[in-house]
């Protein structure tokens, strides 16, 4: 469980996250909102790239904000980025193994853990082939494998389906849904693909202009009129 209390982030003159309090109970949780709502900034707070002006983030009883940024991976925080960040120079195996190396997981289990993560995401490629030679879909899967290897506790997925055609999003959705059960991790999924969010997430929180406008079971949240208004706009605003 992740508890966010009164979180506020300010950049000179802009408040991308404004007094947000929200709870991510477990399983796969969606985080949605129009462009500029503060979703990625929220991920950056969790990763330690952005220091909040106020508020606390407690993950499984521990104060996440107190940890040095690079130590959060060892604690069990994993994330993917909007732009794909698998390391082109390294092989698929090494890409996943390097996360395992810095996760604090047992060295003797590395080979098995890495290969099982690659198998888990359904990547049918030679693990020793360089990531630079893979296509967009396969790179996305390598990133998901990187996100689940080495005892993850919280997995942040930032638009994992961006740029993928529908049938491949279907496969990705099946993989994401299995993460909590298989690895015992809490997943927070940011995406604009509502089909993906409804398929994967039991609960969803919605941000708009840095404020939390709804949170709860996904189906209810997506029917919420504030949410519909945030996405489609209203006549008054026009």
């Amino acid at each position: 469980m992740i508890e966010v209390t009164a979180l506020t982030v300010r950049f000179a003159g802009v408040t991308p996250i404004d007094d947000v309090s929200v709870v991510f109970p477990g399983g796969t949780c969606g985080l949605i909102g129009p462009n500029g709502a503060g979703k990625t900034t929220f991920f950056n707070v969790l990763s330690g790239f952005v220091r909040p002006a106020a508020g606390t983030v407690t993950a499984f009883g521990e104060n996440l904000l107190k940890m040095a940024d690079y130590r959060r991976a060892r604690w069990g925080l994993r994330r993917t980025f909007q732009t794909e960040m698998a390391v082109e120079q390294l092989s698929i195996f090494d890409n996943v193994a390097m996360i395992h190396e810095h996760s604090g997981a047992k060295r003797s289990a590395r080979r098995d853990d890495v290969l099982s993560a690659i198998e888990f995401v359904g990547l049918n490629a030679n693990p020793s082939s360089k990531v630079g030679r893979l296509g967009a879909r396969e790179r996305r899967l390598v990133e998901v494998a990187r996100a689940v290897v080495g005892r993850p506790r919280v997995v942040l997925l930032d638009e994992p389906a961006a740029g993928l055609p529908d049938e491949e999003t279907g496969h990705l959705s099946a993989v994401i849904k299995q993460i909590p059960e298989r690895y015992g991790a809490l997943v927070i999924l940011v995406d604009h693909d509502m089909a993906l969010v409804s398929a994967c997430c039991e609960t969803t929180a919605v941000l708009d202009f840095g404020k939390l406008i709804a949170s709860g079971p996904t189906a209810e949240v997506l029917r919420n009129e504030h949410v519909i208004r945030a996405y489609l706009g209203t006549e008054e605003e026009l």
């Binding site: 990763s47 330690g48 790239f49 940024d69 690079y70 130590r71 959060r72 991976a73 060892r74 925080l77 994993r78 994330r79 980025f81 960040m85 698998a86 390391v87 082109e88 120079q89 390294l90 090494d94 193994a97 390097m98 996360i99 190396e101 810095h102 996760s103 990187r146």
Partner: peptide
Amino acid sequence: TKPGRAWATIRESEPAAIAAGVNI
């Protein structure tokens, strides 16, 4: 080995390396 993989990750992207737990 480990340092080489960490270096390659830093070269790709420093934020991604930090998120991967690399002490840059």
